[in-house]
Design a protein around this nucleic acid. Sequence first.
DNA 1: AAGAAGTGGGAATACGTTTGCGCACGGTCG
DNA 2: CGACCGTGCGCAAACGTATTCCCACTTCTT
Lengths: 342, 342
Amino acid sequence: MASPPEQVARPATIRDVAAAAAVSIGTASKALNGRGRMRDETRDRVLAAAERLGFRPNPLAQGLLAGRTYTVGLVTGDSYGRFSIPVMLGAEDALGAGQISVFLCDTRDDPIRERHYLERLLARRVEGIIVTGRRTEPRPGIGHDLPVPVVYAMTQSTDESDYSIIPDDRGGGVLATRHLLATGRARVGHITGPEGFQAARERAAGLTATLAEAGLEPAGEILFGEWSEEWGRQAADILLHAAPDVDAVFCGSDQIARGVAETLRERGRRVPDDVALVGFDNWEPMALGCRPPLTTVDMNLGEIGRLAARHLLDAIAGEPVPSGVHTVPATLVPRASTRRSI
Amino acid sequence: MASPPEQVARPATIRDVAAAAAVSIGTASKALNGRGRMRDETRDRVLAAAERLGFRPNPLAQGLLAGRTYTVGLVTGDSYGRFSIPVMLGAEDALGAGQISVFLCDTRDDPIRERHYLERLLARRVEGIIVTGRRTEPRPGIGHDLPVPVVYAMTQSTDESDYSIIPDDRGGGVLATRHLLATGRARVGHITGPEGFQAARERAAGLTATLAEAGLEPAGEILFGEWSEEWGRQAADILLHAAPDVDAVFCGSDQIARGVAETLRERGRRVPDDVALVGFDNWEPMALGCRPPLTTVDMNLGEIGRLAARHLLDAIAGEPVPSGVHTVPATLVPRASTRRSI
DNA sequence: AAGAAGTGGGAATACGTTTGCGCACGGTCG
DNA sequence: CGACCGTGCGCAAACGTATTCCCACTTCTT
């Protein structure tokens, strides 16, 4: 194992390298960056010295000169992190590949903290900002006329001129419903989260539209409630009472689906034989722990983050900034809870 | 709403401020930092100009001069994030309060990527590094003789001279067991994750030691398996067969506990009346979704992160760096699954 | 009124890097 | 043998800020 160079005290500067290679600072710089013309022997001597001294160019000095910092800010509010974390990691992935480093800021959904972090990021001369948060109603933008581009990921700005990228909830609903129809179901119920959530409304809309195409209607009322297992358990009973012949339930989240699965089992309905079940989120610990494992819709959160990051990179590179809300297609993950009953 | 200053094109520099206030750059700097002596009128004029131009000192220039960057690196491997995220946010919280910004790096548990990110962080002249990851066996250190202090949080370095801070798994086991004993249980089984995990072994050790103090032994064998609901379901049957008179089960994770709860219910054992149940992690969606809601042990992950950060700050400030492994006490979160049977 | 003491502010330098410009040297050709 | 050209490298400016030193001017003292 090659032990790192012995410059523990003070990092080597290009001046040290130049001195060690007996050239001027300028020549050393050119050698290291392959810019000017010089004898191979000279270049090699500089490179060897740099290697020996463990030289790394000081990015502060580079940034100061170039007027760039190669950093962006990642502002998150969803402290719980279940949704924003995959987005963050996706973004970090795409940015890291572009030699851009990411400043992490957790606002805890506090506008004061958000403002504070925004100031700090701008002071640090980040070249762009990604705002991510929990999926809910559109939120006010982080600021107007900022000197850097901003992209909203997994959350949506109320400002039309901002660029937001969110999951295709409606498309996810369509996907789930088509899958249920394809496995021979026709009486599909829907249990989901609060009607106040745009995501819940969109998913429901995807369901009803797809059913309508097939000349069908949802089984029973669409049940808006909470994003919890407990609500899933309660609502399943309501649904069984309102539409006893239901043969499939599309749930607005995996948690709700688990609650539904439990009630169904206790009421003697077999999953998937009697009733097929589809969740939403592909939250693996939930979906895989379910009995039977849950067919569910994956929002491709990582992809959302990656796309947001790539878009931000484009904006930083000076490409014209589009605006509005864009969506990333969801994916269906089939598991045992919708296996075709023979 | 005060709209931000109109310097969209290029951030104002201290030169602009000095010109606007009709003083020299040096004087402007002194005015802004309250250093030299000057007439109040002059100082006010500079401050007003700075305010008007929306001046923020360029941290690159400051860092270059001061030899400091006021940044640290946060290296995480646990892509799944359930454990490392709260740690990260806790750390970010403590560091942010100290005007330190955090570079986020996700290694995805890939040593190559880790090495790569380490290089990049050092190149960026971070002043310290926090390494966090999924709880498992101790891992090799991130590097030796690094020019900056490193703290391991929620993961443990094999290098004795490194500083690691992890949850007190043993203490958590003690806490859970005492709680069960206090609620009148005496035949306590234990179902947990793979024996390869130090965390699993420690929790088990906490249990057996506490039982021994009371002159008791675990009910049945300690069942090592997986961190999954499915294992919880299987193991509960094994336990019921081996020790039919079991009146409490301490589980190594909330997921396992949920599986156990399900099997217990299906076998006609009431929770908590017949069998009390304690989980581990306080993973709220799991613990609250359980029927009944789960008493569990909270590892105080945020606190681990905060402590790691504070420790890093101390090290950066030059205080002597202790070494070895330190633990953060766990907390018991009582819920319905251990409610005292009257 | 002249010297001393003190105050306000400017010039210069440093941090580490990049880059345009120019100089010296050697070789080639007329 | 002199003019010209290309190669190889150094010099210096620039990025934005903080700080030290020093100078000029005001004010007080005798």
